[in-house]
């Protein structure tokens, strides 16, 4: 929150100071009143749709609520997270989210998926952005083509790729066998060795364009004379890229990476549709949704949701600090 400024832009202050004192205070009082009038409906909706449900989710994670009996939920403290059951004969066992190997498997899957897919998307997105930043014939067409994966609904892309990766009739196996990369058909979405990579492949296809566009916006802010100067000095383009371009667009890349990572951490629909009921790809969101609505463990699912919320909240705070967002409208 380094740059949060609450002060007014100087121009407006100057403008208001020119008016007579009485009129000014009347005017600013009226403007202040209407500001809150304008903000109230929006804030009310956000409180109803985000604030209150979040509090409720956290509350349910400390109860024994089940899907069939939400209203009869009773407070059970930390039992959904951490519980030691003493069997009486000196032995006992730990239960709860923190001791659930399936949960940690989901956490691992989520982290693995996020790190790998965001890394590939960043490198590929940077390459796409560099190409799109160059002048060539048909650039507008290429730029339009790149937007297509982004415009396709996630569910549709999951289905499209499920069909292309079909083990018997899929075109992907056919292509790879024709080229000679694989010798027999692979069941991409079902095989434990490839299921996660199938998910990553679809995600990379769908979100690389978004990455490329964000990075491209950063690239276009690099002034052209920087390249001119490097060219006159006879510096090799590769060196220019590493020493000049990359440092200049690093902020844009960083923001894009954090945005994508936050998105990837909460992934649900792609995995739910492409690889249903598969422990090799189950992520935190899928785990939570299953417990909430399929296994009748509403409270336990709420605990998982709360955990995921805390992870994302932590990263968001980190992002706001790193990006030093300009919230007051100054210094731009």
């Amino acid at each position: 929150m380094a740059n949060v400024s609450m002060g007014a832009p100087p121009t407006r202050k100057a403008m208001e100071a020119e008016e007579r004192p009485a009129a000014r205070s009347n005017l600013s009082r009226e403007r202040l009143r209407s500001a809150w009038l304008f903000l109230t409906p929006m804030l009310l909706v956000l409180a109803l749709v985000a604030g209150w449900p979040l509090i409720e989710t956290i509350y349910y994670s400390f109860t024994n609520a089940s899907l069939s009996n939400i209203d009869g939920a009773e407070w059970v403290g930390l039992r959904n997270y951490w519980e030691y059951v003493d069997y009486g004969d000196g032995e006992g066992e730990y239960f709860g989210l923190f001791f659930d190997s399936q949960w940690w498997n989901a956490v691992w899957n989520t982290v693995y998926y996020t790190v790998i897919s965001v890394s590939i998307e960043t490198v590929l997105g940077l390459a796409f952005a560099l190409v799109l930043n160059a002048e060539f014939k048909g650039r507008a067409l290429v730029r339009a083509a790149v937007l297509i994966p982004w415009a396709i609904p996630t569910i549709v892309s999951a289905k499209m790729w499920a069909w292309m990766m079909n083990d018997q009739f899929g075109i992907l196996n056919d292509m790879l066998m024709t080229v000679g990369i694989i010798s027999s058909p692979v069941a991409w979405t079902a095989d434990p060795d490839t299921a996660m990579w199938a998910v990553i492949m679809v995600d990379v296809w769908k979100t690389t364009p978004f990455m490329a566009l964000l990075i491209l916006a950063g690239l276009q802010m690099v002034p052209g004379d920087v390249y001119e100067a490097a060219k006159i000095d006879g510096i090799h383009p590769v060196k220019v890229f590493w020493k000049v371009t990359l440092p200049l667009i690093r902020p844009a890349i960083l923001v894009a990476v954090i945005f994508r990572a936050l998105d990837a951490l909460r992934v649900f629909d792609l995995i739910y549709v492409l690889t249903p009921n598969n422990t090799d790809t189950k992520t935190m969101s899928v785990f939570a949704q299953e417990n909430l609505f399929q296994f009748d463990k509403f409270a336990y699912g709420s605990a998982a949701s709360t955990f995921l919320f805390l992870v994302i909240a932590f990263i968001t705070l980190f992002y706001i600090k790193v990006a030093r967002l300009d919230l007051g409208g100054k210094g731009r």
């Binding site: 449900p53 409720e56 509350y59 349910y60 909460r266 649900f268 939570a288 949704q289 995921l308």
Partner: peptide, 23 residues
């Protein structure tokens, strides 16, 4: 306020799912 609004836009949907469902 702006910070709050930005924070809400980062909310994972799953975090409000249980509460919203009940509501």
């Amino acid at each position: 306020l702006l910070l709050t609004i930005l924070a809400v836009s980062m909310f994972p949907q799953i975090a409000v799912l249980a509460g919203l469902f009940e509501m």
